[in-house]
Design a protein around this nucleic acid. Structure first.
Lengths: 326, 326
DNA sequence: CTGTTAGCGCGTTCAA
DNA sequence: TTGAACGCGCTAACAG
């Protein structure tokens, strides 16, 4: 490359990286021509080895399955990264083994910072702590308590879920079923949305608990809801841990000839747009606006800061959005 | 690190990379202890600079939006990569500008190979060609003709779409609407699923064309279908370019009090599981089994081959799956 | 305006 | 069984 343009490697570096060293127009042209001719692109591994920066952000997600939250988070991150000259590489965790692998990739220095949103317990706390100890700037979306050494974004899902269930109780429903994600339901003690459910019932002296899994995908949700709604002790309400599951429940009810909310009230979590096109429209708890720019800013603040910043915490704002289904 | 364990850097390298050089048990222990104590992880940039391999695969997708196809592709890739000691980094393209950025990241050597599935025309052909010219092993899912220098996976969507529309014609429907993705509908000449639609109609001498966008997300699909079905010239059938859009159309029909398939027949594309829980079940064209292991194998064959392999081509197998909605 | 040189952190030879 | 020394491709500092 350098010899084809008949210049030194340093000059090539200066031309291609566009730094402000003065370069003769003719020399620059020779370099650019040679680069085009050879299809030359600088090796990023060498570059970041030298510069000690990759200009990349790692986005760590449970799956590439397109949970609505992840989608918005990803688009906001990509946009803001773009504007700042960073690229984004996404790592999917899927399971515990690969969580370890993903952390190792980050420890290996693939990115200058990380935005981490992993639900469930695939990502062990000590892995996260070890990564944070590296000094890697990171923002973690989690409600767990053990997360330290990085910014944390919390979601008031327990309170919001309790509010949803209390809303159902206020409507006179007593037999209320919970349809949750596997990672919440199959666990020794209730957490998250399930905890909100049990808390609300307890607070109002309702003894009956109907806890099912099925919120993880639409098909299972439909089947679970169908089972619930065809049982002799049909619930008067279903609180689903996701809007997608709640929407499946609405369909299940309608397919059984039940009226929503007459025969069964349904509330979901997340406030996705699709809740506006169901009949009736879906009641839900979640953010009013889907905006993660504040979360992403946390990360870029850290990246642009000279000295390490103190750990910050954001609590997202969720509200009960009452629509037709409850 | 090396000095803490009181050994040379070479010994550290040997211990941590676990190659077969004999190392005294006591030395190995010293190294491992020091590594744990320091939270040391080898720098991957330096490693891959030296080894000229990253042990990573790049997965390039249009969005992280979780199109069902991408999900299956991603899980199969992750599984097979895992088994072979590779990690996967995902790059989202979103738009033309970032397509260029994603290609640059790959050219910069972030991965040893790439699996590329970008719909629409965000990813220009010359970018792909330039990348292929690098010698980077890659597999591209595309029906375009200009793709060269890499393995190509094709989908018989034109023929399958035509088959779907002919099936509707055979059922006596004449006024058939097409609900497509923006990237296919807003284009000078028909391609892909839209081309299948027009071809079938032409072949059977049907003049009427009802072409709408709206298949890109469920909300738009619902609204588009509602508009179509409330118009005075209500179509007798809707062929939707995605199952998700088709399912929204079924719901739109039901919400309008129309019977499916009595008043309107509906067919989708993709054969997603969710088509089994609609009332009626969704007719669709797509793969019978969702399995991308053959596609992923193409890539690993290339990675493991000593000398460059000739470009191969896979044509995926799609069939019309007739269920209740048509 | 441009070239020379010294590392960035690792893996690999060769010598001990 | 271990260590010393070189170089992967690049950027930053300095020399010219």
């Amino acid at each position: 490359m350098a010899e084809l343009a008949n210049v030194s490697v340093a000059t090539v570096s200066y031309v291609l990286s566009g730094r402000d060293r003065p370069v003769a127009a003719e020399t620059r042209k020779r370099v650019l021509d040679a680069a085009r001719q050879l299809g030359y692109t600088p090796n990023q591994a060498a570059r970041s080895l030298r510069k000690r920066r990759t200009q990349r952000i790692g986005l760590v997600l449970s799956t590439l399955g397109g949970v609505p939250t992840d989608q918005r988070l990803a688009t906001d991150l990509h946009e803001m990264a773009d504007a700042r000259g960073y690229s984004v590489v996404t790592l999917a965790v899927y399971n515990e083994a690969r969580a370890k692998a993903a952390i190792d990739v980050l420890r290996g220095g693939i990115a200058d910072g990380a935005l981490i949103n992993v639900v469930g317990d695939h990502l062990a706390h000590d892995l996260l702590a070890g990564l944070a100890a590296t000094g890697l700037p990171m923002v973690v979306l989690s409600n767990d308590s053990g997360v330290e050494g990085c910014d944390v974004v919390r979601t008031p899902e327990v309170a919001a879920s309790a509010e949803a269930v209390e809303h159902l109780l206020a409507g006179g429903r007593r037999r209320i079923a919970f349809m949750g994600h596997r990672h919440e339901v199959y666990r020794d003690r209730p957490t998250g949305r399930l905890l909100g459910y049990t808390t609300a019932l307890e607070r109002h002296g309702v003894a009956q608990r109907i806890v099912t899994a099925g919120a993880d995908d639409r098909v299972t949700a439909y089947q679970t809801a169908t089972d619930l709604l065809s049982s002799p002790e049909r619930p008067e309400a279903i609180f689903a841990a996701s809007d997608r599951a709640a929407i499946s429940a609405i369909w299940a009810a309608r397919d059984l000839g039940l009226s929503v909310p007459g025969d069964v009230a349904i509330v979901g979590v997340g406030n996705i747009d699709e809740g506006l096109i169901t009949q009736p429209q879906l009641s839900t708890v979640g953010p009013l606006r889907h905006d993660y720019t504040d979360v992403v800013s946390l990360l870029f603040d850290r990246l642009q800061a000279e000295e390490p910043l103190p750990a910050r915490e954001i609590v997202r704002s969720w509200t009960l959005i009452r629509r037709g289904s409850s």
